[in-house]
Design a binder for these strands. Sequence first.
RNA 1: GCCUCCGUAGCUCAGGGGUAGAGCGCUCCCUUGGUAAGGGCGAGGUCAUGAGUUCAAAUCUCAUCGGAGGCUCCA
Length: 923
Amino acid sequence: MTESYQPHDIEVKWQRKWEESQLYRSQVDWSKPKHYALTMLPYPSGDLHIGHWFAMTPSDARARWMRMKGYNVLFPMGFDAFGLPAEQAAISRNIHPWKWTYANIERMREQLRSMGAMFDWEREAISCTPEYYKWSEWFFKKFYENGVAYRGSALVNWSETLQTVLANEQVIDGKDERTGQPVVHKMMEQWFFAITKYADELLNFEPLDWPESIKIMQTNWIGRSEGARATFHTEVGGYPIEIYTTRPDTLWGATFMVLAPEHDLVQTITTDKQRAAVESYVEQTALETEIERMVEDREKTGVFTGAYAINPVNEERIPIWIADYVMITYGTGAIMAVPAHDQRDFEFARAQDLPVRVVIQPAEADEPLHGDTMKEAYVGPGAMVNSDAMDGSDSAWAKGRKNPAINRVIDWLEETGKGEEAVNYRLRDWLISRQRYWGSPIPMMFDDGKVIPVADEDLPVELPEDVDFAPTGRSPLTYHEPFFKVDEKLRRETDTLDTFMCSSWYQLRYLSPDCDTAPFDAEEAAYWLPVDVYTGGAEHAVMHLLYTRFFTKALRDIGIFDETAEAMRRHGRDPDCAFDEPMTVLRNQGQVLGGERQGDFVLCSGAQIGGKLLADRVEVVGWNDVPAGFDGVFGEIAHRTENVLHVDMAGITQFVEVQPDAEIIIPDIPGANNVNQLRHHLEIQRMSKSKGNVVNPDELVAEYGADAVRCYLMFNFDWQKGGPWNESNIKGPQGWLRDVWEIAAAGAPAGAGDPDAERDIERKLHQAIAVINRGLEEFSFNTAIAEQMKFKNSLKAALRQGGIGAETWREVMNQLVRLLAPFAPHVAEEIWARLGWEYSVHTQPWPQYDAEKAREDMVDLVIMINGKPRETIAVAVDIERERAQELALASGAAQRFLKGAAPKRAIFIPGRNGSDPKVNIVP
RNA sequence: GCCUCCGUAGCUCAGGGGUAGAGCGCUCCCUUGGUAAGGGCGAGGUCAUGAGUUCAAAUCUCAUCGGAGGCUCCA
C-alpha cells in the first residue's frame, strides 16, 4: 500500500463489488432488531442536485451506523414520478411524459449510485408505473367505500397558469406554491378526502419525536378553535343563518351580520332595492384573486342586502350585509358582527357607519368604554354588560369553556336551544382531483351522474399514451374518447389524483414493490413498520407530512393493516399503536444555499435629474478603479431592476437609470453589451439555474471523489440548518481522508512504542467514539467529523513521536477505519482491504465505547478567585473535596489574594464528563 | 401583527452556570525527491447589546437590536 489516495479508482470499484455481493440487500430477520430509515424520495426532474446529496448522504451515514450497531436496516429509494414538469416537457418539447420521466429516472439512478449510499435497489418503487398506481387507485376505492373519499361541490383554488385546481396546502399567500402565480376561487364539483375527520387526532403529536417547528406548523394549519354555533333567522321569510363564534359572550353586542359574498342565501334575501348593488359587489369579489383579497390594511368594503335578521339572544333586529372580509371557506361563511369587541367588525362598522355597542366592560378602566368614542375594538377581559341575564359574568382572557362568561353563555344557549358548543377548524378537506394527464387515474365511472367504482379486477385503470397535452382547463383525458367512453352510457372520470396521494403511502410500497396481490406484503410490514427515522425538507410540513399521517390513520381505520397486525402477533410483536403514525422520528435538513457573488463595479455617466442619474454610458471596471476627476456615479451594483441600477457608492445607494440607447461596456463580454448583462451583488440565497449559482454534484465527485463530497456536506454545515456553499472548504475533509490514507499506507511503525503514549491514544480513541456516537445520534454530523479529524491529528502526532508500537497501531487503525466507514464508505473499504481484513468493513460491528478507557488519570485542578481562574494544579482525577480545598488554599494564587486572611467561602466543583475540577475562593 | 428558531474566531460551526473550542482560512518558519503540494510554530473572541439572579453568566431571566422560517381579515 504505497500509492497516494486516488478516490476515483476505488469508488467505482467498490460500488460494483457492493452491488455484486448484494451487500445492502435487506431482508426480514426476526432474530435482529429492525431499523427502517427513510429519506424523502426525489422527483425525477432530470439531474441530481447538490441538495439531494445533502439530504441523502448524511441520512445514509446514519443508516450505516445503525447497521454496524447491529440493526437490520432498510434504507430504500424510489421516485415520486407523477407530476406537472413531465407534462410541461410534453407540451413544450413534444416528449411523452412517460419517456421523459423514464429517461430522467435512468440518469438519476446512476447519479444516486455515485453517492455510495446503501440503498437497497431491489426495493425501488416508482409511483408512475401501473404496478404502483394500481394500488393508489385501489386505496382511493377503499376510501370511497368507507366514506373517506367523497365527491362534493366547493369553492376551490383554481390556477390559470397550471390549468388545474389545487389543494389549500398548495396555495401560499394566494399563489400557487410551485410557480408563484395567483389562484382564483371557483365553485367546482371535485373529489375530496375527509382529512378533517382526523383533525383532532392529527393534533396529537404525543407519539412523535418530530421537530417542534413542524408540529407547530401543523397545529397552526389545522387551526382548531373552540366556541359556539348559533342560528339567526331573517326577519322576512325566516331563513336560518348559522354563525360560528369564539366569543359567544359577545352575542348581545351584535349590531349587524355579515355574509360572505358567495353565501347561498345572498340571492334569496337581497331586497329589490339593493339587488343591483349586491350583484355588482358579488361579481367584483369573484374577479379578485386571493392575493388581492389578502392585502393587509385594506379598507373594508361591503354592501347592505336590505334584509334584517333577528338576534336569537335578545330578539333584536339587525341589518345583514355582505363583505369580502368574511370568507366562505371558514366557519359557516357568515358572522355576527360585534364591532365593540372585534377589530375587523369595528373597522367595518366605522367605514359603514354602523352602531357599536359595548357588552364587555373592563374592570380597571379609568372611564367605561363607550361605543361612539372607541378608537379600536376592545378584546380584553371584563364583565358582561347590556346582556340581560348574563350581565356581570366574568369574561377572562381564557378561550372556550375555560372562560367563565363563555362557559355560562354556552350552557344557556344549549338550555334554551338557541345554539350549542362548537369546535371549528381552519383545515379543509383535501381536494384530490387534478385536471391533468400525468397522474394516477381515479377509478370511478359515471352513469348519468350516478357514481360507479371500477371493479377491483379491472384495476389499474391505465393511462392511455396517445393523448393531446395542450392545456385547456380540462384534463387531456376528456378528449380521449377510448379512455372516457366505457360504453354507450358509462363515462370514466377524467381527472387524475394529486401526486401527494402517491407519496402518502410510498413507505409501504418499498416493503414489497413487486407484490401484485396487495399494496404491500403483510409479513414484510409486520417486521419493518413503522418508519423509525424519516429525513427530508421542512417545506413539506403541511403538505406531504400532514397527508401521510392522515393517510396512515385512514388505512388503519379501514382495516388495511389487520393482516399485518395478525402477522405481528404471530411473531410475538405487539401491534398496538403500530399504525397510528407513519414515521416515528422526523428530522429536517436545512438548505444548501448559493455562495455570495460580488456585483460589477461600474462607472456611470450622464445627466443627474431629480434623485437619479440618467446614464448614457456605463462601464464595468476593476474594483475601485476610478479615474481621477470622474464626476459620475461609481460603485458596486447592489441591485438591479430592469434598467434601474442601485449603485453602492461608498456605502450610499445611488440610483442610476440606464437610458435605452446607453453605451454599456463590459470588458469580459466581447461585442455589444446590454443592461441585462450587468451583474448585481447576490446575497447568500437559494441556488437556482436563473441565478447561475447551482453546484453540480457530478463535477464535484469527478474532482474530489464521492467520499470527500459526502464528508464536506456533513462537516461544513449544521445539517438541520444548512448554509452557504463554499467550495474551498472542501479541502478540510479532503485533507483528513488523505491523512487517514497515508497513515494507513505508511504501515505499522517499527519502534516498540511507549506505554504512556499508547494509553493516551487509546483514551483519545474512546473519547472520540463517545463524541461520534452522540453526533450521529443527534444528526450532528459536523461534530462527529470534527472529532474524527481531531483524533486523526492526535494519532498523527503520536506516530511522529514514535510513541505507538505495531500492535497498538493495528488495533487503533482497525477501530479508526470502522469509525470512518459510515461517513466515507469507499475509502474505508479500501483501507480495510489493504490492511488485510476481511470484506466488508460495512458488516463489522461498530467500535464499542469503553468509559474506563476514556477516563483521564490526571486533571488540572482550577483555582479561581471570585470566579476568575488564576492557577492550575495537576491532580488525580478522583480528587476529593477536602483535599482540593486544601491544595487550593495553599496555592500561590490564594496566598496572593487572601494575604493570610481566612476566605469567606471556598466552593469545590467536582470535574464531571471531561471538565476539570475547580475550587472557587471568595476572599 | 402573531408564533418558532437563531446571533460564539475572518468563514462554517461545537459547547453551554465553573479555564472560550474544532475544521478551514490567515501570519511566520521549515521542506523543495509527496510539489498547482507537505511539515512545524503562532496570532485571532467584552460569546449581538443592556439590565437582573448567583460565590461565579457566553450559558439562566427579562428587555432591546439583528437574522431565518412559518401563519395572517380564521369570526
